[in-house]
Design a protein around this nucleic acid. Structure first.
Lengths: 346, 346
DNA sequence: TTTGGCACTCTGAAGCGAAGAGTGCCAGTT
DNA sequence: AACTGGCACTCTTCGCTTCAGAGTGCCAAA
């Protein structure tokens, strides 16, 4: 059986059982064990032949001459792509998750709660990216002068979310100028998207610049800086990192430390999440597939979550390559749906 | 030499050298090594006698019959209390720290920077408690109605700090009622402490309840909830936790995990910091002294930091019991002074 | 009081052999 | 042609022993 040949049904079945066994036991599995567990009426010797083939194809390896087989990253990939049989969550589990999310007041708590849920359900680390709402509907704006040509802008958007930014301006504005500008915006633009407002103002500026009064110029100047896209400092919520410390595949303290450092830097993980946001639905990265050596012994299972049909964020879990995909995949999937619904409903 | 007797000068000297040696090498130190390192002209045998005394007093132990001595928590305590000779920081080091703090814009960044500095200088974890300012001077307030008898209160205090809170009220208020209440507060109370404002309003209420107009009642009702003491979610800034993973005294993954969990829960650590805030100056907890088993193999070195002479917060480092106190203590001390100064100056 | 000497203890590394697990291959069976 | 039992071989793991090294405690002498 050559490298690129199709797997026989039997080989697939054996690979599936091997992976399942390995996931549940964490030990290399030998031909004898497999012949007992597989349900097929085959002797250990026969199975050894099949295993040799799977090894040629790079789906399994044995850590040393006399130690049974372990799935490779490629083996896991094949497993999740075409062998895994997902376990539906029990209804009561779904109900309990839903109620945990419904109790939360604001969005931030909702995300934290979802992250903790992912972590609790899978006993690994859960993560939830802050939603990138396309739209920030202005509810209210306030400007306060600070020293040195700086202004504190407070925006209330999407009904309840408060953002505050310090902006630098060309010249010093007085308190009453700022007040007027804010009033103008509050009277004319409530409910509209802040980026759209900025564009509208800019258009107006170029059309009727000369005839414009001072107040309008002030308003446009300030709004231009204040209504720029939010640079969210904190881009995801991670929970249960410490659970990873209990997992012996990741027992190497040094590896673990690098992983934790990556969590703190956020950049690498964020890059991964961003890639996931490009395409709706679930993504699974196994071992090296994430493309960053810190995650080499890890897998990441993610799903986008959507508000009103639009994917606004990504959530998922991160754990050892040897994780219980049959359960983890549905957990991530369901949590994504529930979170989307919960975000919509308030 | 009995348990409670004073230590001779010689015993003190030997203990000092032993602790220093142990701190730098991390290995139990034997009598032979000590006789060479101590500078005293004493043979190993003599030293062994002294060591036996120190062991009786509980200042050192040997991990097993043939392994030299290691300081106990009590031994370290004695060392830091009366033997340690602090190493002054170099002027250029102080200058570099000062400039790192001066570059920062807002308070939050300042605290993070201080925390990172502590971590970098000591190669352990740094932590800085958010200042508990006694006074929150009102700069501006805004109330916005939300659904279900909730109000979004936005407070700007201490010139530039924005707090937002969702409060629940007895009845639903209209947008214009809230507007009036906010205007009243902004016109009459700017610059005063929010707790004082609340008290003033409450006093007014009891005096002239009957003659009071509806607007005033509204204002008092809302301000009463909105101007309660800030429940800061995030009470301290921790940096460089991962540095602790490299330290072999804390090599036990399970211990380490408990420590990290304690960091996330925050409560325990916060309790410790609060105790430190009771008394100005430096505090050192060695091993069990912190009173919480999670910190058993750790020491915590803290200092209060003050703005205008008033201690408003605590900062420090956390690391293994075997840390270089001679250097760590000055680092914490200096950082506290610099942070206090930096917070004042803006 | 200090010191050299000595017997003793304990650790840690190294080496060894037996047991166990599993493989690869071959020759025989279906 | 596909499967199977058997067998030699390999590799890990565990317990045991040995040995060197480090350091102690105690004693008798200076």
């Amino acid at each position: 059986m050559a490298e690129h040949q199709q797997l026989t049904e039997r080989a697939r079945q054996l690979l599936r059982v091997l992976v399942e066994k390995y996931i549940s036991e964490g030990q290399p599995v030998g031909s004898r064990t497999l012949s007992r567990a597989a349900g097929l009426e085959l002797s250990a010797a026969t199975i050894r032949n099949v295993m040799a083939d799977l090894e040629d194809m790079g789906l399994v390896v044995s850590p040393h001459t006399s130690a049974g087989r372990v799935p490779t990253a490629k083996g896991f990939r094949f497993f999740v792509d075409s062998l895994v049989s997902l376990k539906r969550l029990e209804d009561y589990e779904i109900a309990s998750l839903r109620s945990r999310l419904q109790g939360e007041g604001n969005d931030k708590e909702l995300l934290e709660s979802a992250s903790r849920m992912l972590s609790d359900m899978t006993r690994m680390a859960g993560l939830v990216m802050i939603p990138r709402r396309a739209r920030f509907a202005l509810r209210h704006v306030e400007f306060l002068p600070l020293a040195e040509q700086r202004i504190l802008a407070i925006l209330v958007v999407n009904e309840r979310e408060v953002q505050n930014r310090v902006i630098h301006t060309e010249r010093q504005y007085s308190e009453s100028e700022l007040q007027q500008a804010a009033n103008y915006l509050n009277e004319n633009f409530v409910g509209r998207d802040i980026l759209a407002i900025r564009d509208t103002l800019a258009a107006e500026l170029s059309e009727t610049r000369d005839s414009m009064n001072r107040m309008m110029l002030t308003t446009i100047d300030i709004a231009n800086s204040a209504f720029s896209p939010a640079a969210d400092g904190d881009d995801f919520v991670l929970s249960g990192q410490t659970r990873l410390m209990g997992i012996d595949e990741l027992g190497d303290v040094d590896k673990l430390r690098q992983l934790f450092e990556a969590f703190q830097r956020k950049r690498q993980l964020l890059g991964l999440l961003d890639r996931c946001l490009q395409a709706d639905g679930m993504h699974i990265f196994i071992g090296e597939e994430a493309g960053q050596s810190v995650f080499d012994d890890c897998s990441v299972v993610t799903s986008t979550y959507a508000i009103d049909g639009e994917a606004v964020g990504v959530l998922g879990v991160i754990g050892p390559t040897r994780m219980d995909y049959e359960r983890v995949i549905p957990v991530v999937n369901v949590t994504a749906k529930l979170l989307g619904a919960a975000l919509k409903s308030d």
